[in-house]
Simulated assay, not measured.
Amino acid sequence: MIKIYAPASIANVGVGFDILGAAIIPINGTLLGDCVTVKLSKKFELINKGVFSNKLPTNKEHNIVWKCWFKFCQAVKKNIPISILLEKNMPIGSGLGSSACSIVATLVAINYVFNNPLSSKELLLLMGEIEGEISGSVHYDNVAPSYLGGLQLILEDSDIISHSLPNFKNWFWVIAWPGIKVSTAEARKILPKKYKKDVCIKNSRYLAGFIHASYTQQSHLAARCMQDFIAEPYRSKLLPNFINTKEKMKEIGAISCGISGSGPTIFAISDNIKIAEKISLWLKNNYLQNETGFVHICYIDLKGVRKIG
């Protein structure tokens, strides 16, 4: 038997639509992600528990975890009977890589129990494939950081799918989930099918600037480059009062802020813990829509997926 934890993640990181992703962990050490326990069994069994387990499909074959098991069996060309316990601690449709947490934790746990028949690259490819079936297109900007940890640049090269970027150790990432859901598939549909050339050039310039600033450790240049010209102008209407919220976070002292993945979670970055705490308090009082919403001050989680039991 093994218990695996996979952390939440911020996809896009503003400037890197479907290209950048960052694994996160609250500074108080709380585990923000899903846990999966796998053990050998006489037949397939799936048990759901956790804060958000009541939001999962009642038909087990519609559950992401079942899809992971089914795809894994196909990959290794054998039917493997196991018992899976999913602790669904991440809200679905939150923009924090909820589906990625379940996918990563499940596949790593199953692979471990059966003595790692799939390589790290094979696992990551399978993670991207399953994520794509849920959201409408293959993308790695949640599964890669949740699996590998840190800040990931998605390359999709034939040999290297994802590459770790240097991060800024003095950055505090304030994340706020308002307690409502935004469908990833719907958030992708709202984007235009074509972009103007000048928008593409501008976004490429800022993305290149962010990567350069990361390697040269110019934190304020990196923060200035974290601007989203691809998704935010269209997705902002799906979030509660996002424009005013963003202005307020910058007024308090955030050096950058944006939408986490498809939303509705938003993030703000500060290099000062006092300012991060002020942003956190303001978001708790003004951005959360109900009692299920939450705010966390986070670091980048460098570990990624890991065994915890």
Rank of each mutant, 00 (worst) to 15 (best):
F17M: 02
V13W: 00
N203R: 06
L148K: 08
Y299K: 07
T184W: 09
A11H: 01
G14D: 06
A6S: 12
I82N: 01
E122F: 13
F52W: 14
L148V: 04
N89R: 02
P91I: 06
K43E: 15
G258R: 01
K71D: 15
D271F: 10
Y287N: 03
K307P: 11
K67W: 15
M249D: 04
I92V: 12
L221W: 08
P7K: 03
S119Q: 06
S41G: 09
G253Q: 02
I82W: 05
N241I: 10
C101R: 04
A22Q: 08
S280D: 06
K49T: 15
I230Q: 00
I4K: 00
M127A: 10
S102P: 09
P240S: 05
W171Q: 03
I275P: 00
T30M: 04
R306W: 14
D18K: 01
F70E: 09
R188H: 15
R205C: 14
D228V: 00
G263A: 08
P91W: 13
G128V: 12
G293V: 03
K49H: 10
K78W: 11
G149T: 14
I297M: 03
A6Q: 06
R224Y: 15
T184D: 02
E156A: 05
V113I: 15
K194C: 12
E291I: 13
K77P: 06
S9K: 04
V174A: 02
Y140R: 00
L118Q: 07
N170P: 12
Y147N: 05
H163L: 15
I24Q: 04
K303C: 11
Y147W: 11
H62F: 14
A100H: 02
A208K: 02
G150C: 11
G128D: 08
S120N: 12
T265P: 01
Q74F: 12
L86I: 13
P233F: 11
C257N: 09
E247C: 09
I134R: 01
G14A: 05
N170A: 05
V108S: 00
P192N: 07
D34C: 10
L125Y: 11
E87H: 06
L56T: 13
G304M: 07
I110S: 04
I300V: 15
N142R: 08
